[in-house]
Write a protein that binds this DNA or RNA. Structure first.
Lengths: 215, 215
DNA sequence: ATGAATGGTATTGCATGCAATGGTGTGGCC
DNA sequence: GGCCACACCATTGCATGCAATACCATTCAT
């Protein structure tokens, strides 16, 4: 079985990522090789490969001497994460302004419409928000940028809560997203980059405020 | 043996990275699990973990149905790499301007001096150049930024040749590095960011020219 | 009652063995 | 002489088994 479009290790890796993203595996939660092996129905060997990758990616940490745990970010890490995100989203927006196809821009427009009209609850808005940023990343047609962004998004999933719980946040985000998309649509790379940067700076501020209030 | 400061998988991973960085493993070179296991003196299990990580990082690719090979970047990938690098180095420079200690700035100054006075051959200059950029990354005190930069540097190692082979390149690089460091020293984040961006754009142009000429 | 020592146990780290797969070389046939 | 088929072999994917370790609970002594 030297071939398989997706190895069992990939399966486990993806499964854990999803579980973290969906909150089934919260920061600090313990992760055991044998448990994962049972859950996915494979032996410990591919599980180890997946875990090894997740540790090197920073999603899991080796918990003392006793197994692994989902990483838990401290305040400083969240600050650093958003500081870098400012640049990565700015890069994405610029690339999208330069390289997005008309179809991709339309898809972005639809995502924006959906979050404005259909979505009310914070959870759904948070999902749509993630999709919007991922779609910009993919519209930039830069493999390295997209991968860096996807990894950063994995790390963001380790920060508890969503800023969409805050009153008025949805409207602000919508306005900022619109500004980014309009700039991309106009093929104005500088403006797209600047708009993305402003957006992430505001998002970071909101996030830290939320984190500070609830801790 | 549930504890070891560095597992055998880490050892293999680091070893391969180093071999690629130092050119012992050129892009396209075949990589076999058993060979690596013999080389490092471990069994195939930790080797597989390391390879799995290297593949997910993009350093290795699964070569058809037959084993692995060191990744080979095409022209488009090099373009994308430098497009992203512009942003990551800009981020690094900004962070360094904001957070570098005086000691770190002094170390940067010394690296610059060394490459101006001591180094003549392209290989040595390329090494010093890498160290300079890595030092800026580390002086920024942003874990995520530093890791993203280190990963990008691994990818750069997959591009053959060095621009320091080009006549007059050393002087240009030195001037641009000086501009970045001066801005960091002045704690002028905007200027540092802009200078880094200009530098990488020029570096990218030089790199593509070199690649185009030799292919 | 509290602290320290000790044995048991949960859990990882690694090696080995086996099966599956795809390429590669060889021989036969047209 | 060229082409196709077949068998072999190299190489990976995975499961299992064993050893080592650090935690945890329990017990004993003070």
């Amino acid at each position: 079985m030297a071939r398989a479009d997706t190895s069992r290790a990939d399966l486990v890796h993806e499964r854990v990522r999803t579980m973290i993203r969906e909150g089934l595996l919260a920061p600090g939660a313990r992760v055991r090789e044998a448990d994962l092996a049972d859950l996915v129905g494979v032996s410990r060997t591919p599980v180890r490969e997946a875990i090894s990758r997740l540790v090197s990616e920073g999603q899991l940490v080796t918990s003392g001497g006793r197994g692994f745990a989902v990483a838990r970010l401290d305040r400083q890490q969240v600050i650093e994460l958003y500081a870098l995100r400012e640049f990565l989203e700015a890069a994405s927006a610029r690339f999208a302004a330069q390289h997005a196809s008309e179809t991709e821009i339309e898809a972005l427009r639809e995502l924006l419409e959906e979050s404005r009209t259909l979505a009310r609850d914070p959870q759904r808005l948070a999902v749509l928000n993630k999709r919007f940023h991922a779609a910009i990343g993919s519209a930039g047609h830069n493999r390295y940028g997209e991968q860096a962004l996807s990894r950063l998004s994995d790390h963001l999933a380790l920060v508890p809560g969503t800023t969409f719980e805050m009153a008025g946040r949805a409207e602000i985000v919508h306005a900022e997203h619109t500004a980014i998309l309009d700039a991309i649509d106009d093929r104005d790379a500088d403006r797209a980059e600047a708009a993305a940067r402003v957006h992430i700076r505001q998002a970071g501020k909101a996030r830290l405020k939320l984190l500070f209030d609830r801790i």
